[in-house]
Computed example of a mutant assay.
Amino acid sequence: MAGAQLEMPGMPQRLFPATPSKLATFADCPRRYRYAYVDRPTPPKGPPWAHNTVGSAVHAALRSWWELPRDRRTAVAARQLLYGVWSATGFRDGGQAERWRARAAGWLTDYVAELDPDDEPVGTERQVAATTQRLALSGRVDRIDQRGDELVVVDYKTGRVPSTDDEARGSPALAVYVLGVQRTLRRPCRRVELHHLPSGTVAAFEHTERSLANHVRRAEDVAADIAVATTALEDGVPPDEAFPAVPGRQCGWCDFRPSCPAGQAATPAREPWSFLAADDDEAAT
Results as ranks from 00 to 15, higher is better:
residue 117 P to R: 05
residue 78 A to R: 01
residue 114 E to V: 11
residue 237 V to N: 11
residue 161 V to T: 14
residue 155 D to S: 06
residue 211 S to Q: 08
residue 32 R to F: 07
residue 82 L to V: 10
residue 84 G to K: 02
residue 33 Y to D: 01
residue 167 E to F: 03
residue 81 L to T: 03
residue 196 H to N: 08
residue 264 Q to D: 09
residue 37 Y to H: 12
residue 1 M to C: 07
residue 65 W to C: 03
residue 114 E to L: 15
residue 5 Q to R: 15
residue 81 L to Q: 03
residue 182 Q to R: 15
residue 240 D to Q: 15
residue 167 E to P: 05
residue 271 E to I: 00
residue 165 D to I: 10
residue 203 A to Y: 00
residue 47 P to H: 05
residue 134 R to S: 09
residue 232 A to L: 14
residue 35 Y to N: 06
residue 265 A to R: 12
residue 170 G to W: 02
residue 113 A to R: 15
residue 233 L to E: 13
residue 124 T to M: 11
residue 65 W to V: 10
residue 231 T to W: 06
residue 195 H to S: 12
residue 74 T to F: 06
residue 247 P to T: 02
residue 229 A to H: 14
residue 230 T to R: 10
residue 128 V to S: 02
residue 110 D to K: 10
residue 139 G to E: 05
residue 202 V to H: 00
residue 277 A to E: 15
residue 129 A to E: 09
residue 225 D to A: 13
residue 144 I to C: 01
residue 253 W to P: 01
residue 108 L to F: 07
residue 74 T to N: 10
residue 257 R to E: 05
residue 103 R to V: 05
residue 272 P to D: 12
residue 223 A to Q: 03
residue 41 P to K: 04
residue 250 Q to S: 02
residue 67 E to G: 08
residue 153 V to S: 03
residue 33 Y to R: 07
residue 66 W to D: 00
residue 216 V to E: 00
residue 197 L to Q: 06
residue 23 L to P: 05
residue 246 V to G: 01
residue 245 A to N: 09
residue 164 T to K: 05
residue 107 W to H: 02
residue 251 C to W: 04
residue 162 P to M: 00
residue 195 H to V: 09
residue 209 E to W: 03
residue 38 V to E: 15
residue 90 G to E: 01
residue 137 L to G: 04
residue 212 L to A: 05
residue 257 R to G: 05
residue 131 T to N: 11
residue 50 A to S: 14
residue 70 R to Y: 13
residue 261 P to V: 09
residue 63 R to M: 11
residue 157 K to I: 03
residue 120 E to T: 14
residue 117 P to V: 09
residue 9 P to D: 13
residue 238 P to D: 12
residue 147 R to I: 07
residue 195 H to T: 03
residue 150 E to I: 02
residue 111 Y to P: 06
residue 179 L to C: 06
residue 198 P to N: 00
residue 238 P to C: 10
residue 4 A to W: 11
residue 222 V to M: 07
residue 260 C to S: 14
residue 87 S to E: 02
residue 116 D to K: 09
residue 178 V to H: 03
residue 138 S to W: 07
residue 76 V to T: 15
residue 260 C to G: 12
residue 170 G to D: 14
residue 178 V to K: 05
residue 47 P to W: 04
residue 192 V to C: 00
residue 33 Y to N: 07
residue 183 R to K: 12
residue 127 Q to T: 14
residue 261 P to D: 09
